[in-house]
Design a protein around this nucleic acid. Structure first.
Lengths: 338, 338
DNA sequence: CCTGTGTATGTTAACGTTATCATATAAGTC
DNA sequence: GACTTATATGATAACGTTAACATACACAGG
């Protein structure tokens, strides 16, 4: 079954089609100047021989890999998956292929990944978040390729940015609850050093509470990321035990919010009657569950689309200055809050 | 910021360290024979110059890319993400890098992806499912590299297999419900040609119902994949309207099962009092929600781990024959079924 | 002292493609 | 009919690395 003779190269195809290797090369490059009939003859010969174009050799010679390196904190997260999905669609027309890696919310692991990716000579790099190790920053800066940081508004950007302020988004949610007359509001998650977006969200919560002159110490630690439903449920149990008079709780994500909701249901705590719940991320579960969960929609697909557009512009040299594209997350009020 | 002079190569590092390029090459290859001090000197020089190893050139010369191409139906699916996660971990020690692509449950798109991936000369290919276009099969067979098909037990495997029978798994669930005395059982999803695993699950349902001499026509179409919570909820509404005497419903996945559960809750239908619900995949939502959802656990991470082990063996030449590793999905009985 | 063995390094050419330049023919301009 | 312009193809060398082979030296055993 496996073909034992050496795989055919352009030279073999060229001989079979009676042309030079250069013409074969052109035949495989869309838009190159080749006679239509010649091209057809070449492609037929290639097909006949079972020839497969060798991107490795092409990349080496042309110094264009058509790779875009992308890192996300976790593969198993619908938000980041949505961003990557939109990014993939957006880059497909340009023939760019994504090298996807996940960091496990760890900037040391991110450094390892980026170092590995840079060896593949990607034509651009898209990372999640704005916090990186010094070596990661060096590697990216020295590469002289477009860099995009997403899902955040970094203090000192490496290049372009497509993101939003996680802190500000949560502050808006606090404002909403306060405007509903609530004063005893808690926050679940955002306690782990590694999850910088989680930290920002909790910081936003605390800042807003302080601004309103309210108690900002109803913080429930959910442990190291990824924070998912189980952690949300456990945290809610803790909250109900330690601060039963809490009127509303904001969770670091919809997943933990759903876990929190489930914990309430198991304990017979009425949502939103007794306590209001809000999440972050507009995950499907929060839209479907009963009651549906109030959330903040950061438009993950939009982030991917905008990043793809930005990258296209940058690769075409249409960008002279670093661009910062700020997204405005929207609050979606649903059944879990009064 | 961007370094404008040409990026340094091994030759530059060699000059700086006072050795030949070949010694630099060896210094970057773990396990190669280089004097420890020489290596240290070389790595220091490389660091000083900002040298980044060029995998493209290395791959071309050595004919080893250290790429493994992997295709899954959807990025945004915790089951496949788990498999890919375990796969990544398992392949990391070997220095293999995953080229990940998703097919949108479409074998035409799979063909496009595989064709694109083969140009990168991966050292192995792992695909989801056992159904492929003829051209995909040709491309994979002719590549003379290890192939693994997962999440299925193909009729005519391309190479190795790590999977299970989706039909059989659902049959076991039907058997369970029947053993509980139920006779009016429905199935949601598995109607779309594109989702072959969904089709198999529905086929398994029908086969089991026939075997028990029961009505196998309580089938609710959920439309094209991906079938998620929304589709599950809509389908449940249809079921409750058209066959209100149904005693149990098996859903093509936990996501649709959760949607179905939510629909019941909105309509005031007691689960499992009035109707039992079962899903497939052991997604976290089914474990956390109230009531928790009876499901079938296909061990997605195990599939990834086994695939990684199989690949290691195959790449070491320790495998002479194609291997078929069958997983045994387990039924997890939970609160949503009597 | 010779030979064998292991360690450490160097030399040469090649992996398969394409950038670059050169060439050839056809078609349009005045 | 000489002169530009466009179209189509070929020849040559190079991208940055490493496989394969060669070399040099140290040290062991006889």
């Amino acid at each position: 079954m496996a073909n034992l003779r050496k795989a055919p190269t352009m030279l073999d195809v060229a001989r079979a089609a009676g042309v030079s290797p250069m013409t074969v090369s052109r035949a495989f490059k869309p838009g190159a100047m080749v006679n239509d009939q010649t091209r057809a003859r070449i492609l037929a010969a290639a097909d006949e021989l079972g020839y497969v174009f060798d991107s490795t050799a092409s990349s080496l010679r042309s110094q264009k890999t058509d790779f875009v390196a992308v890192t996300i904190p976790s593969l198993n997260n619908a938000n980041f998956a949505d961003t990557v999905g939109a990014l993939t669609e957006g880059l497909k027309p340009r023939g760019l292929q994504i090298l996807l890696g996940y960091t496990n919310y760890d900037i040391i692991e991110e450094e390892r990944l980026i170092a590995q990716f840079m060896r593949r000579k990607p034509q651009a790099v898209i990372v999640t978040g704005g916090q990186h190790t010094p070596r990661t920053r060096d590697l990216l800066r020295n590469a002289a390729i477009p860099i995009i940081e997403t899902w955040d508004l970094p203090q000192d950007p490496l290049g372009h940015v497509v993101g939003f302020s996680n802190a500000q988004a949560v502050q808006a949610m606090v404002d909403h609850f306060v405007s509903c007359g609530m004063t005893r509001i808690a926050f679940i998650g955002g306690d782990a050093d590694r999850d910088t977006r989680g930290l920002d969200r909790r910081r936003g919560f605390m800042a807003a509470m302080q601004r309103h002159g309210l108690d900002d110490t109803r913080l429930i630690a959910a442990g190291p990321p990824p924070i998912s439903m189980r952690e949300g449920a456990d945290s809610m149990c803790q909250l109900l035990d330690n601060a039963p008079d809490t009127q509303a709780v904001i969770c670091v994500s919809d997943l933990s919010a759903f876990g929190a909701l489930s914990a309430c249901q198991r304990r017979g705590v009425a949502v939103p009657g007794q306590i209001s719940i809000a999440g972050f991320g507009n995950y499907e579960v929060g839209d479907i569950c009963v009651p549906s969960i109030t959330t903040i929609d950061p438009s993950p697909r939009r982030i991917g689309e905008l990043s793809a557009e930005l990258l296209s512009a940058a690769l075409d040299g249409r960008l002279t200055e670093p661009v910062c594209h700020e997204i405005s997350p929207r609050i979606l009020l649903r059944e879990s809050s009064v």
